[in-house]
Design a protein around this nucleic acid. Structure first.
Lengths: 109, 109
DNA sequence: GTATCATATGAACAAATAATCATATGATAA
DNA sequence: TTATCATATGATTATTTGTTCATATGATAC
């Protein structure tokens, strides 16, 4: 007979957030799950930056950076402001820092 | 003339961790960036669980869960212990909770 | 208006990834 | 040892994802 764990399953399931929330959560983390985007976020720790500066920093095309910034914007991790032709990107809030800091703590052990 | 930002780039670059660290960091976050794995981790918040219980909880095959647990193990987010035929998985440390909590804070705004 | 700089975006393609299937390993009980 | 339960793993496949290329938009200067 296979072993039973219906009681445990019920307890655990009752604490589990709904699927939509968990999907949002994993989507958020997957935004952090790319080297290019992590580098962009880390750069913005120091200062707001325009797209072409980020591209130059990471030695990547403007297009690639722009595509990634779009994802970061949609995840509400960065915001932008226009100044003439230039668009400056900056961190949306402090969660970015704390999430990345927690991640750094984990890998530095 | 294109606009210049060599000074900024130098400053930002000097604060940037090395590529290897940033790669590790993004790999860590990409482990959180999947619904199945987030569900597994959330389940383990409540209690250690054996593989077949997790599979039953998430209504997925044992194989799929086992593959994901492997990734979680390699990221050092979970550990396991054997008890007879059964293998119990549990959270490796408290970073898992704090990272997920920070993520939850961000999406619930 | 035209030219140019800065950025955004759609399509296409290559690489990475998550689930499935079949099978292997490892432990226990008979 | 044979049968069974619990888990792991390799190969395959469908889907997702990141970059590139070409082009579009939007602002400024002339």
């Amino acid at each position: 007979m296979k072993h039973d764990h219906t009681k445990l399953l019920h307890d655990v399931d009752s604490q589990m957030p709904d699927d939509e929330t968990l999907a949002e959560l994993s989507e958020l983390f997957s935004v952090f799950g790319d080297t290019t985007r992590i580098k962009i976020l880390w750069a913005l720790f120091e200062s707001e930056m325009c797209v072409c500066a980020i591209a130059e920093l990471l030695k990547m095309t403007q297009s690639a950076i722009s595509h990634q910034l779009k994802l970061l914007r949609h995840a509400k991790l960065v915001n932008s402001r226009r100044e003439g032709k230039t668009i400056y990107y900056f961190l949306a809030d402090d969660h970015v820092r704390s999430i990345i800091n927690q991640g750094m703590e984990h890998i530095s052990e």
